[in-house]
Each structure stands twice: as C-alpha cells, then as structure tokens.
Design a binder for these strands. Structure first.
Length: 868
RNA sequence: GCGAAUGUGGCGAAAUUGGUAGACGCGCUGGAUUUAGGUUCCAGUGGGGAAACCCUUGGGAGUUCGAGUCUCCCCAUUCGCACCA
C-alpha cells in the first residue's frame, strides 16, 4: 500500500470499479425491499455550485447507507432543463438555448460523475426532450377535459420598449432590467390549473406526512390558508339599477364598525366612478402600473381616493362611502373589502391618514379605547366582546359571527363561506424555452386541443431569443398549422408552460424513463413514493405543493396509486460565504471573490482586516450571504475537487454543519477535512505494513484495550443512529474523528492490540464509506478484502463490547458541579447517594449544612440540595 | 407587511428525553522534526482571578432541586411571498 494518499488515483480507481460492475444500476425486484432516494434535479446553469455538491452528497450518503442495510436502492439523476437563464445566455452570446443547455448538461454530468455519486445513470432524463415533455402536454389535455385546466385572463409585467412580458425577476424597482422602461401591468389570456379544487385535500393530507419537517408543513398550511368567514354585500343603486358590492371578511363580528369600503383599481365600481373624474382615472392608472408582487404591496404606502359613490350598510342601512385603494387586489377574494378602522390595523392607519371616522364596536374588559394610537387588543378575537352594536352587544367572536351571518342570510345579502389563500396556478409563460402548450387557435372553431396522435408539439431547437418578445411568434413553420377540427388554416399557441410543470412529476418518470408509449408504467408501483427526498429549503412551498397537486391529479386519472409523492423530506440549508467589496466614491460597488482575499489576524486569531491579494489594499466585509454571482462570493467545486479530491469536498460539506442548517464556507475547514483523510490513510498504511494479526479472543483484553474496543462499538452505534435516524452527518464524522484520535494514541504493539486496531480500522472504513466512498474503497482492499466496500453490509454492534463495570456519576450541590464519583453499574439509587455524599470534594460543600433533598438520576448524576 | 426558521468561545459547531455547556474541526500560542515553503508531530487554548473560586449559551423576566433546552416579552439575522429555479 502506498504510504501517501493520492486522491486523484484513488478516486479514478474506485469510479472505474463502480462503472465496470454497474454497481448502482437499480433493477425492480419484488422480493427485495426498495428504497427510492431522490435529490431535487438541477437546473443546468453551466457548472455545479456548492449547493449542488451539498444536496447530492446528502442524498448519496443516505443512498449508500441504505444499500449497506440491504435495501434495493434507486438514486436517479436528471435535468430541469427548461427555463429563463438559457434565454438570457442566448441574448448574451447568440447561442440557441438548446445548444447552451445540452452543453451545460454534458459538463455538469461529468462533474457529478467525478464526485462519485451512486447514481443509476441509465435512467437519466432531461425535461427539454420531446419524449419527456410530450407527457406534460398529454396530461394538460386530460386536465382540460376534466375542467382542471381552464383559460382566463391574468396580469403580467409588460415592458413597453422591448414589447415583451417580463418575469418578476426581470423587473427591478418597477423598471425593465434591459430597457429601464417603467413596467406596466397588462391583462392577457392565460391557462390556469385549478389547484384550489384540491385545496382541502392538500391541507388535510399534510397529516399523512409526519416525516416532513414541521416547518415545511406549517409553511404549506399557511400558504393554502383556509379561513372561514362571511361573504356579504353592500347594496347600492347605479343608474337606478339595484347593484351589490360583494366583500369577504373573517371578522364579521366587527361589521357594525364599518365606516367605509375599499375597492381595487380594476374593480367595475372604480371603472364606473372614474368616468366623470379625471383625477380618479389618473389614480387608477397609477395603481394599474404598480407591482404585482405581494411583498411590495404589503410594504408600500397605502394610498386611496374617494370614488364619490356610497353603498348601503346591509344591517344598519347607513350610507357607506367607497374608496379606491392601491392595497386592494382584484385577484384576491372579491376585489373589494369592508373597512373597520377601529379593529383592523391597516384600516386604522388608512382612516387616520385620510381622516375617516373610527367607530369602536369591540371592547375588552378593563381596556380603554382611544383613536390616538393602535393597540393590539383592538383586533383581539379571544377577549373582545361586541359593544355599541345593538342586538349583538356582549357577544364573543364566534357567536357574533354566527348571529350576523344568519341575519345577512335572512336578508339575502350574505352567508358564511370558506375561502382559501391559495390561488389557481397560472401556467402560461410568454417565453420560448419551455414546453409548448398544445392548443391551436382557429378563427372558426376557437381554441382547439391538439389531438393526442399529434403529440408532442415539438419545440424548434434553433431559435435565438433577442429579448423582444417570444421568438416562436416569428416562426411561421411553428405557428401556422391546420385546425384539427375543420382543417382550415389556424395558429398554434406560442405560450409555453411554467417550468414548475416539468418538475411536478419527474420523480415518477424516473421509474420508467425508457418508455415511449405512456407517461408512466407499472414500475411506479414498485418504486413510488419517494422514500427520501432532499432539496433546498427555498422549494418548501411552490415546487413541493405543485408536485403534491400533480400527484393527486394523476391518481384521480388512475395513472398512479399513491396519494403523496414524497414520504420523507429533508430540506437542506443554503451554502453561505463571506462577501467582500469596495465602494468607490463614484460608480458601482465592486465585489471580490473570497478566494482572492487575505484575512489579517492578530496573535489571538481575531480578525483585524482583509486585503485583496493582488494589490494588497483593504477590502470591506459585507457579512455572510448565500453564494451568488451578483455578490461574487461563490466557490467553484471544480477547483476544490482538483486540489483535494471529491472525498474531501464531500467530507467537508457533511462535517461543517447539520444538513438542515446553513453552511458557511471555510477554506481552512476544507484543509482540515483533507488532513483527516490523510491521517486515516496513514493509520491504515502503518497497520498493514506489518503482517495481519491472528484471530483474537476479545473476551480477555487488558482494561485499556477493553476501553478502546468499547469506544469502537460505541462509535459504530452512534454513527448508525446519526446517519440512519437523525441524519446528523456532522456528529457522525466527529465521533469517527474522536475514535481515530484514540487509535492514533494507542502505542501497544501486542498481538491483541493489533487485533483490536484491525477491527477498529475495518469498522471505520465501513461506516465512513457512505460519506467518503473512494478512499474507503481503497482502504478496504488494503485491509485484505476483495470487491467493493460499497457492496458490504453495515456492521452489527457487538453489545458485549459495550458492557462496563463502573460508571462515572456527576455530583452537584444545589445544581453546581462539585465532584465526580465512580459507581458500580448495578448500584441501587441509595448506594449511589451514599457514595456521592461520602465523596471528599462534595463533603466540603455539604458538611455542617442541612441536606434537604437528594436527587439521583440513574447513570447520570446526583444533585444534593442543601439549605443556606 | 405576512409566514417560517436561526442566534452558544476568535470562527464552524456539539450537548438526541429538563441533568457535566463548548465534543469534533478551524484558527491562534509555545515546542519538536523536516523543508526553500506548504507539511507532520507534541502541549496549551471561553472570560476574570495568585488561588479558592466566580462569570458565561442575543437581551430581559418566569417555572424548576437543576434551563442552551420549557413559558412570556424584546432585539438581530436568514429564507419564502405565487413569472428565478
């Protein structure tokens, strides 16, 4: 065995072995228990980033660990290959998105292979291939037939200069990212998927996912947002016709406190009122130009203007003025709200700003209402009781809502209703690099679905977007077609599907990615659902919710039989790195890559400054942030693999933080991981440089060797639990490092010691193999074995090795640590108490004092409570 | 703004069920060996104190024999908010 660890050679050898033996090819076998381990597939953006390395290493550790437990494991890989960045690259470089995407896939596939992941590459797929997206189109048509897919207008960002629709991401401070033109909102026809039809099931079935992180389930539940309230109307007259202004509220108990109503700029009432008011029209136009993003709406200044119209309060009959407000959205609820300034914080501030009346109708015992400042209790549902509300006085929230809803119902002006925060999923994108929506527009027949036999509608791969609209519209060979119904010339739909469609069912396709005549086949029954899904926390809501929805639609079409696609979910944290910059007096901030920055430390290791290596001049620190191009703080995994090898990259990312937490990059930490692998290599090399020890009777070891052997099996037990149950890879690695330190200190050269060391090294090699598969592949061979460590079974704990005669017990006096005593394992509590009280160090704190109580925690500690 | 999370030495972190705070790693200090240097090995390393001992888990209160862990209030940071993926 070579004395020096050479990762490049070691990794090449291990990968060659796995390749020639097809070690990770997954074959359905009903006799074996399956385990489907899936990491979220990457967008082929160019090269791997650290987030990918982290994601796929976590998946690979779980995959290899499950394999060693005898499971039939499937770990596939594919490409989420449609999307906006390919079009941006096309604009920048003049390369068609297809070529850019395929080149990136080729490069990134090579990178993934160099990291040694136990992937079944035979099932690889890319969502931009017609054989994949054909089934997006096919299922979309089935949804259309069932009324799950439908057409209505939706609002988009319109760049008036480029004459194109922009993604939210391409709108910066209300302006187009390329043109700088002020963005307008524009309403266009779009296709929607009725995810709200599944809202109840998507909410209730969260209970079927106990192995999902609590926080993700909470976020999904909030997103779906079930609320029960009252939908009711304010009647009014319009040109002598009787009309109704409908609103929805969860606080019907405050209805007697309504002092005005507010409607969205797009509301018909606003449109009507603006006919005679240029000022109102101007305000409406301003609102219509504004943002469509919820976060902006929530934080922007609330503005309003009176519509000059009044409606009638449905219970009191009083006239209620109507305002047009920029914070009311047409897309939510009814596009109109009742305003109760006394009991809604937003209404309160709006009323103060525009000097509108504030009328208290809820009171809390002992609290005094004042219109000067908002107080939390004004909106308190639990403690509040109706006041100044006539017949409702004294009623609490639930009772009041029921009584008021009943009265509104009697007048035919409203009823209780459940509403959802969840909105239907708009899937139309006015973009080229996506899956074409299979619809043909005919002047005679309207919107005609493409017949199944004509699927897929193939996207031409040679377009080069230039930023002005969708290039598909300029492709007569794509657009011009014949109507499938009447045969007359017609136009093909040029919108493509949201890329979330592609990622909503790829996990099912991996089970049978080779078939051409169906979306999925019977193999999904064997592999699905995914046993372990791993991906970024940033996908906690949208991707996971859409995938759950899509699964339920496929189930209702009898394509699959599972209710939920992902049994267990691990959401990995982001990879962060420090941000360095200089801010010139004029011009833009310049960011420096941390690899090019040198830190200045004082002699205690405390940071005193940082300089750019090339010029030695200081740079400022902008704190820690997610690795991103814009902040130039990314680390290229490729450079890391070339310098230290894949195992070091894998070891560091698993060791630096638990998987669900953010991970801060550290070059020194990487070097530390490499050091450990070198030490491990040397431990084995030194050991195998002498003849292997003969079989040894472990029941008759010296106390020191017994202790060491106990530590070996304690470590095995801990690592088994940390990887298999807790998924805390960092503590598993720390435990093995501790063991390696103990082993390094063992200088005993006896036969027994060499036998203990041999067992320890074998076990360490086995249990580290999921994390660092290449080096352990080589060490396993060096330790005298054949074949691959990856194919070995996980070792069992020798429980006899764990036995000990005495335990160390901590002794506290009044909760403070005062001593340690050794007690026999089987000692009763009384005996432990006696030994503790007799201890010299403890006696100093107890003698002459009144012992009030002694608490004995078996196997752990004794706490002596004394007076004074 | 709403929703979700996080906060522990100089740094990344550990403490799994309310029971020894700081495992493991990095950095730093001193020493040894080797080298042109990176390397490797040994010892030390939360703060204060001569010591006994005291203090210490973002801040403040509380429950408990005992709180990093539970409860309440406050502060800071990060993620998501529907056309980035």
């Amino acid at each position: 065995m070579d004395e020096h660890y050479s990762p490049a050679q070691v990794e090449k050898d291990a990968q060659a072995y796995w390749d020639t033996h097809q070690s990770f090819k997954a074959v359905e076998d009903p006799k074996r228990e399956k385990f489907y381990c899936l990491s979220m597939f990457p967008y082929p953006s160019g090269k791997l980033h650290m987030g990918h390395v982290r994601n796929y290493t976590i998946g690979d550790v779980i995959t290899r660990h499950q394999r060693m437990h005898g499971k039939n494991v499937l770990q596939p890989m594919g490409w989420d290959a449609f999307g906006l960045p390919a079009e941006n690259a096309a604009m920048a470089n003049g390369v068609p998105p297809a070529k850019w995407t395929y080149d990136n896939i080729a490069y990134m596939r090579k990178q993934l292979k160099s990291l040694g992941f136990a992937i079944d590459w035979g099932r690889e797929l890319a969502t931009c291939k017609p054989e994949y997206y054909k089934w997006n189109q096919w299922l979309f048509l089935r949804m259309l037939e069932k009324g799950i897919a439908y057409k209505k207008t939706g609002v988009v960002n319109w760049d008036p200069v480029d004459q194109t629709v922009l993604a939210n991401e391409q709108v910066i401070d209300g302006r187009g990212w390329r043109t700088g033109a002020v963005i307008e909102k524009r309403e266009i026809p779009m296709y929607y998927l009725a995810i709200t039809q599944y809202a109840e099931e998507l909410l209730v079935d969260l209970d079927k996912l106990p192995e999902w992180p609590e926080r993700v389930r909470a976020m999904q539940a909030n997103w779906i947002g079930k609320s029960t309230g009252v939908r009711f109307a304010f009647p009014y007259k319009l040109d002598d016709r009787d009309e109704k202004l409908w609103v929805f509220t969860t606080r019907a108990d405050t209805i007697m406190g309504v002092t005005f109503c507010a409607v969205a700029a797009e509301h018909p009432l606003a449109t009507h009122a603006a006919k005679n008011s240029p000022k109102l029209q101007a305000f409406i136009d301003e609102c219509k130009r504004g943002t469509v993003m919820e976060a902006d709406i929530a934080t922007m200044e609330k503005k309003g203007i009176p519509a000059g119209i009044s409606v009638t309060h449905p219970l009191t009959g009083e006239p209620i003025p109507v305002w047009v407000g920029n914070y009311v959205l047409m897309g939510y609820g009814e596009g109109a709200v009742m305003a109760v300034p006394a009991h809604d914080e937003r209404d309160f501030h709006f009323a103060k700003q525009y000097k509108l009346p504030i009328k208290q109708v809820i009171g809390v015992e002992g609290e005094k209402f004042s219109t000067d400042t908002w107080q939390e209790w004004y909106a308190d549902k639990e403690r509040g009781r109706c006041v100044r509300s006539g017949k409702y006085d004294g009623l609490g929230y639930g009772v009041a809502v029921d009584a008021i809803a009943a009265d509104l119902k009697a007048k035919g002006l409203g009823a209780k209703q459940v509403i959802w925060r969840l909105r239907d999923w708009g899937v139309s994108r006015q973009r080229y690099w996506g899956c074409p929506i299979p619809i043909i527009h005919c002047d005679h027949c309207g919107d005609v679905p493409v017949p199944d036999k004509d699927l897929p509608v193939v996207l031409p791969e040679d377009c080069v977007p230039d930023g002005s609209g969708n290039p598909l519209t300029k492709r007569p060979d794509f657009v011009n077609c014949l109507c499938p119904k009447c045969g007359k010339p017609a136009r093909r739909e040029t919108d493509t599907m949201d890329t979330f469609v592609d990622s909503s069912w790829y996990y099912a396709r991996f089970c049978s990615s080779d078939i051409a005549n169906a979306m999925v086949d019977e193999r999904v029954k064997y592999w699905m659902p995914v046993d372990q899904y791993i991906g970024g926390i940033e996908h906690a809501i949208l991707h996971l919710l859409y995938s759950r929805f899509w699964s339920k639609v496929m189930r209702d079409m009898q394509l699959v039989s599972y209710d939920e696609p992902f049994s267990r979910l691990l959401t990995q944290g982001m990879v962060l790195n420090e941000i360095f910059f200089r801010k010139p007096p004029t011009g833009r901030i310049i960011y420096f890559n941390p690899a090019d920055v040198e830190l200045k430390l004082d002699d205690r290791g405390q940071r005193i400054g940082a300089v750019f290596k090339s010029d030695g001049q200081p740079v400022e620190s902008g704190g820690i942030g997610t690795m991103s191009k814009s902040k130039n703080n990314g680390i290229d995994p490729q450079a890391l693999i070339e310098q230290y090898g894949a195992d070091t990259a894998r070891l560091f990312t698993m060791f630096a933080a638990p998987p669900e937490m953010t991970l801060e990059w550290s070059d020194e930490g990487v070097a530390g991981a490499y050091r450990f692998l070198k030490r491990l290599w040397k431990l084995v090399a030194d050991h195998v440089s002498k003849p292997f020890p003969a079989k040894c009777d472990f029941t008759n070891l010296s106390p020191a060797l017994r202790d060491l052997r106990r530590q070996v099996h304690q470590t095995l037990a801990k690592v088994t639990d940390d990887i298999g149950r807790r998924r805390t890879f960092n503590t598993a690695i720390a435990a093995v490092m501790e063991l390696a330190n103990a082993l390094g200190k063992l200088e005993d050269g006896s036969d027994a010691a060499r036998a203990v060391r041999h067992e320890a090294l074998e076990l360490m090699t086995l249990i580290l193999s999921p994390i660092v598969p290449h080096i352990t592949h080589a060490l396993w061979l060096a330790l005298g074995h054949q074949g691959s460590v990856a194919d070995r079974r996980w070792p069992p704990v020798d429980t006899t090795a764990l036995k000990q005669d005495n335990l160390e017990i901590v002794v506290q006096v009044n909760g403070k640590l005062r001593g340690r005593v050794s007690v026999p394992v089987q000692a009763a509590d009384d005996k432990v108490r006696e030994i503790a009280l007799a201890d010299e160090a403890v006696a100093r704190y107890v003698t002459g004092k009144d012992v009030k109580k002694v608490i004995v925690v078996p196997g752990k500690l004794v706490n002596i409570v004394v007076a004074g």
